[in-house]
Amino acid sequence: MMNKTSKTLDIVVRPGMSLTGKWHKNTYQIKRKLGNGAIGSVYLCETKGKQAALKISDKSSSMTMEVNVLKSLEKAQGNRLGPYLLDVDDWVTAQGTYSFYVMEYVRGMPMTDFIERHGKEWVGVFMLQLLEDLEKLHQSGWVFGDLKSENLLVASSPPKVRWIDVGGTTQIGRAIKEYTEFYDRGYWEMGSRKAEPSYDLFAFVMVFLSVFYPKRFPKGSKPQATLFKKINDVKALKPFSYCLKKAILGKYSSSSEMKKEITNILYQAQKRTTRNQQRHNQRNKSTSDTLPFMIESLGIIGIAIGYYLSSLIIP
């Protein structure tokens, strides 16, 4: 069913063509396909000289639900968590009517690629950025649900993690709308699929594990032991392992609590490195102090030996 939908969509929606909405009469020129979602496909398009992302599907009701989420997220806060919504409309064709919505095109690099290219020191930065956004989202009564590395892009200057698919976003207290097995605590037998902050925090840990295990890993007969071992085995995650395990066990009641502990770890680590650096500098300083002295004394000894030898030759 899902396959059939995207296949027919690929036939109907082609790069270069334009489509016009039934209700608002805006025209969009399709540039290229950006990807497939759980429902429908996303295309890069151009309208009035500007680039935007257009999501289209034949599942009108699911699309409407996604739009509802985007709208409530915008209402909930000035700070934009998801992509900015630009237009919602229908497209009537001979093959049938499709629903689409147009949103801001978030340009960026997948988080995993970014960390690979720019270094592991970004792990801590992105952890804090994500926890801050999750905190805001949870405070406004929502849970992200389908939090996974594929849904996260790093936009540049300055590097900032952005969420690109909010389809799984669910009101707190309800059943998670959309999820991906590897990131889902129900799959790992570590809890329910009720939308609560701790559900997102579990997926949060899996996001950072997926950065270091791009091919993922199987559940095994003892899921919790598997997860703990995988956390222990990554050197870059070592400083955070206590927090990550706590989140796996669902022991954080809020993202601010977790953010506080991670901030603390980063702060301590920074203090330690600056202290080490200072100590290192001091050591350098002491050798640089002694070096001239040693050269000097070596010189004096040399001259002394010279005098002694010459006194032997010349009686």
């Binding site: 639900m65 509802n68 709208k71 009517t97 059943a175």
Partner: peptide, 22 residues
């Protein structure tokens, strides 16, 4: 039917459907 309604109204109706489903 629902598809004949403009997207904004459809959104309100889907909220009701979602509430019922939950």
């Amino acid at each position: 039917s629902m598809e004949d309604l403009e997207p904004e109204k459809r959104g309100e109706i889907m909220e009701v459907v979602e509430d019922l489903g939950e």
